[in-house]
Amino acid sequence: MEKAYKVLLVDDEVNVLNALARSLRKEPYEVLIAASEMEGLNKLYVSRVDLIISDYKMPVHDGVEFLKRVAADYPDTIRIILTGHADMEAAIAAINEGGVYRFLTKPWDDQDLRITIRLALEHLKLQRENRALSAEVHKQKQILKDLETEHPGISQINKDETGAILI
């Protein structure tokens, strides 16, 4: 059975990635791991990732820079930070500049992490549904508009005093 969502974990420590993957192994989404920002960008490019969890301080690139780039290239992806640097300035920068959904600190609580991811995915699902629905509504409206141009008055519905529709 194909899982509906893909979650990408990015951290420069493989042991952290393995532990996270273990604690998420029974969750109803697929877990991908990347041990560097480059690998992370690669996975993003190859698979459609719904949610990304990343440390914000990593070798090569600043984690915030990485997340900014993800936000720019994949705006539909939910971004969560998981870091050992519990420093407020960084958290604010990450949330403002990186458009981060949540800021989690290490050591993390497995249960909290799982709940956070589920809520985020629900959030994402709602977003997508909402977008799909608005698109549908928009499409319907367009059809109506087209009909009205071809047959003026066709979208007008007239009723009599009893509520019966007049044709």
Binding site: N15, N18, G84, K106, P107, W108, D110
Partner: peptide, 17 residues
């Protein structure tokens, strides 16, 4: 703190697993 939080994080998580 960061150096220690990383291993503590995965130690705790691994014990849960």
């Amino acid at each position: 703190a960061h150096e220690i939080n990383n291993p503590i994080g995965y130690i705790q998580s691994n014990l849960n697993s």
